[in-house]
C-alpha cells in the first residue's frame, strides 16, 4: 500500500519523509495540498516545514487546504495518519488531535537533538520500539510547546495517549534542562483515542541513517511498513 506525503506551500521535510518511507520499503508519493482525493493510499504523512509561511499561526491556514477533507476521512476510517513538526501543528489546528502547539517558552527557534521516551509500542508507528526506549532525535521548531487544558491533559494521561515524552539525556546530571520548549507534561508526541493519528514535534525522518547522526527515527517507518503489510 502506498503512502501519501502531503505537500503544502512551505512544506520542507516532504522529500526527507518520502526518503525515510522508501528506505523502510514503502512506496511513497508526494501529494499537492489541493488534491481532492487520497483514494488508494494506505497512510498519510503531513511533513514538517512552514505551511503558508506559518502565517496567522503555525498550521492554521493549512487546515483549510482541500486535501484536509480527505485526511480527515482517512483518519476517521482508521488509516494511519502522522504529522511531524508542522504536520503535528496542522493536525491540532484541524482538530484531529487535541491541544495546541504554542510558541516555545524561551521564544527561540530551537534546532538541536533531544531525548524522548517511547511510552506506547502498540501503534502502527511504534511497534518496532521497546516500551521505555529512549530515542535521540532532532527538533527544529519555534512553536512546539504542547498545551491543552487540565481536563484534556488528564484524559491524555489516563488513556495512554502520550506516545513520546522529553526526558533527560541518559546519564546526564538530573538538574540539566531537557524539555526544549516548555511542553506541558513533557509531551513530545500524542496519539488520538483510536490510536491511528499520531503527531510529534521531533523529526524521525531526519534520523534514519548513521550519516545523519542517529538512526533512532527508523522505527517509525519500519513499524508502519509492517503494519501496512499486515493490512494489505
Amino acid at each position: 500500500m502506498k503512502v501519501a506525503v502531503v505537500v503544502f506551500p512551505g512544506s520542507n521535510c516532504d522529500h526527507d519523509t518520502r526518503w525515510a518511507l522508501e528506505r523502510a520499503g514503502l512506496k511513497a508519493e508526494l501529494v499537492w495540498h489541493t488534491e481532492g482525493s487520497l483514494e488508494g493510499y494506505g497512510a498519510v504523512f503531513l511533513p514538517g516545514g512552514f505551511s503558508y509561511g506559518d502565517y496567522l499561526r503555525a498550521g492554521a491556514l493549512a487546515k483549510f487546504s482541500p486535501v484536509m477533507g480527505e485526511v480527515r476521512r482517512l483518519a476517521q476510517q482508521g488509516y494511519p495518519v502522522m504529522g511531524i513538526c508542522n504536520g503535528f501543528q496542522v493536525l491540532t489546528e484541524a482538530g484531529l488531535l487535541p491541544g495546541a502547539l504554542l510558541a516555545n517558552t524561551n521564544l527561540h527557534y530551537t534546532c538541536k537533538e533531544v531525548f524522548l521516551r517511547v511510552e506506547r509500542t502498540d501503534l502502527a508507528f511504534t511497534s518496532d520500539y521497546r516500551k521505555g526506549q529512549v530515542l535521540r532525535l532532532p527538533i527544529a521548531h519555534g512553536e512546539g510547546r504542547y498545551y491543552a487544558d487540565e481536563e484534556t491533559l488528564a484524559r491524555l494521561e489516563n488513556q495512554g495517549q502520550v506516545v513520546f515524552r522529553y526526558v533527560p539525556q541518559p546519564g546526564a546530571a538530573s538538574e540539566a534542562p531537557y524539555n526544549p520548549n516548555g511542553s506541558l507534561l513533557d509531551i513530545a508526541g500524542i496519539v488520538n483515542e483510536r490510536g491511528n493519528v499520531l503527531g510529534m514535534m521531533p523529526h524521525p525522518e531526519r534520523a534514519v541513517e548513521e550519516v545523519l547522526g542517529s538512526v533512532d527515527g527508523e522505527g517509525i517507518f519500519t513499524s508502519l511498513s509492517k503494519a501496512l503489510s499486515a493490512m494489505a
Binding site: L56, A60, F64, T92, P98, A100, Y147, A148
Partner: peptide
C-alpha cells in the same frame, strides 16, 4: 471563529 483556535 474560523481563524481563531478555541484551544488557546
Amino acid at each position: 471563529r474560523a481563524l481563531a483556535n478555541p484551544v488557546m
